[in-house]
Amino acid sequence: MWVSKGWWWVAVGAVVVAAWVARGGDSPKTTDAPKAAATVETPKPSAPPKPSAEASTEWYRNYDPAQFAVPVRKAAGRAGVSPQLLMAILYNEDYKPHNPQLERSWQHLKPDAAFGIANMHRAAFDDTKRGRSFAGRNWDELPDHPELAIEAAAWHLHDLAARVPRRTGGKFSKDELLALGYNTGARNMRAFAAGAKPGSQAQSYLDDLHKNLPKATKAITG
Rank of each mutant, 00 (worst) to 15 (best):
L142C: 12
L85T: 13
A135V: 06
D127E: 09
V17G: 07
D208P: 09
K44S: 13
M1K: 15
E176K: 06
G195A: 08
D208R: 15
D144T: 07
A152M: 01
R23F: 11
S27P: 08
D159C: 03
L180R: 07
A33C: 14
A75T: 00
T217W: 13
K197W: 07
V164P: 00
A123T: 09
H98G: 05
A123N: 10
V81D: 02
T42F: 11
Q67K: 01
A47N: 07
A152S: 06
K171F: 07
M87G: 12
E93L: 10
G77C: 02
F68M: 00
H210I: 13
L90D: 06
L178F: 01
F172Y: 13
P143D: 00
W9L: 14
A193V: 10
Q67E: 02
L178V: 01
L109K: 12
K211R: 15
G25A: 00
H98W: 03
R190N: 05
T57N: 05
K171L: 12
V3Q: 06
A79D: 01
G199K: 11
N99M: 14
K197M: 11
P198L: 11
G170C: 06
A154M: 01
T184L: 14
A47Y: 05
R163H: 05
P146A: 12
R163S: 03
E103C: 03
P100R: 04
E141I: 07
G77K: 03
A135P: 01
A153N: 09
